[in-house]
């Protein structure tokens, strides 16, 4: 098992090296170079320009810049953000928790609804419920996540104003922005108010991500369960005279869950994309929102940092999917 994980980790190293090359040299293709962000300040003198170029090390040969970037990604501060004037690592790590909270919540909602819905739909095939699930999954699957988010906002924050429009916390209640030192102190003093505050804010974005996910997952669960129900061992179990409950839960469901669990792990990158989209809509202070802010400002080191972190995350997600697959299914060997 450990050897398997180690081997997979080693395999992902060339991929990560290639990604770093793609990102770095792709960025060099920016018309006007990475400095173009500063071009928005017309009053700048040539001397000031040169000073900035020197300060950011942009006057060095390109391969030196690349190596320096890689070095700082591996050991250091991940370079400095052009506009936030802080180390990129600090900025990203401050934003990462919000994204993870959102992903985990959305994921829980998604599975709690999708799995039972898929199982019931399969057990009562062609019933009204089954048809409804199928219809919903087609529609949900075809909906742009960002538009769904906007529609939910419109309904639950504007027409029926019961939920907040944006953000992760109510700054007026907490007195400070999320995860600042003041906020953390406040949160420790008022944990219950703090959690309720986050919960009311997370409902809409998490539901948005979950709805699209439920559409895919319930369909997957349904077809997997249908496969299992028609297997010989299920017929055997029925023939033995086992109760329907035992047949369904112990014999069919346990086998049907195998591909579903693998699929869940495979879907993690999709979940990440969903989070990126919803963050942009709900001003959720996570990595996705940060990315679009950085894009707006053309904050080149920050963009590279975010892209690298998401690439590493996805490599890890894929690894997780493989491990889950090998771990759950006894027929798969680690070799």
């Amino acid at each position: 098992m450990v050897g398997f994980i180690g081997r997979r980790l080693l395999q992902s190293i060339p991929t990560l090296i290639l990604i770093s090359l793609l990102l770095f040299f792709g960025m060099q293709a920016v018309p006007g170079g990475p400095l173009s962000a500063f071009a928005f300040r017309p009053g700048m003198s040539q001397a000031a320009r040169n000073a900035i170029i020197h300060q950011w090390g942009l006057d060095q040969p390109i391969y030196v810049q690349y190596l320096q970037w890689v070095k700082s990604m591996l050991t250091g501060t991940w370079q400095f953000s052009f506009f936030m004037h802080r180390p990129v690592r600090e900025v990203i790590l401050q934003r990462l928790p919000a994204t993870i909270i959102l992903m985990v919540t959305a994921y829980l909602i998604q599975q709690v609804i999708a799995l039972p819905a898929g199982i019931i739909a399969a057990l009562k095939r062609y019933s009204f419920f089954d048809q409804a699930v199928t219809f919903f999954s087609y529609v949900g699957y075809s909906m742009p996540t960002f538009w769904l988010g906007l529609m939910l906002l419109l309904i639950f924050a504007v027409f029926i104003p019961i939920l907040p429009v944006a953000g992760i916390i109510n700054v007026r209640v907490a007195g400070a922005p999320f995860l600042t030192a003041d906020y953390n102190a406040w949160f420790l003093q008022h944990p219950i108010t703090g959690i309720i505050d986050i919960l009311t804010h997370i409902v809409l974005p998490a539901t948005t991500i979950a709805i699209v996910g439920i559409a895919g997952d319930s369909r997957f669960m349904r077809s997997s369960m249908l496969d299992a129900i028609h297997q010989d061992y299920v017929r055997t179990a029925r023939a033995k005279g086992l109760s329907e409950r035992v047949v369904v839960l112990k014999h069919a469901l346990r086998n049907a869950l195998l591909p579903v669990i693998t699929n869940i792990a495979i879907e993690l990158p999709l979940l990440f994309s969903g989070a990126v989209v919803t963050e942009a809509i709900f001003s959720w202070p996570g990595m996705g929102q940060l990315f679009f802010q950085a894009l707006e400002a053309f904050d080149y080191p920050l963009l590279m940092g975010i892209l690298s972190v998401s690439a590493v995350l996805i490599v890890l997600f894929n690894l997780l999917a493989d491990v889950a697959y090998a771990y759950i299914d006894p027929r798969i060997s680690y070799a």
Binding site: I19, L22, F272, V276, F291, I306, L307, S310, A311, I314
Partner: peptide, 9 residues
Amino acid sequence: VFLTVPALL
């Protein structure tokens, strides 16, 4: 490599 960096970004 292309599959690892999200197209969305």
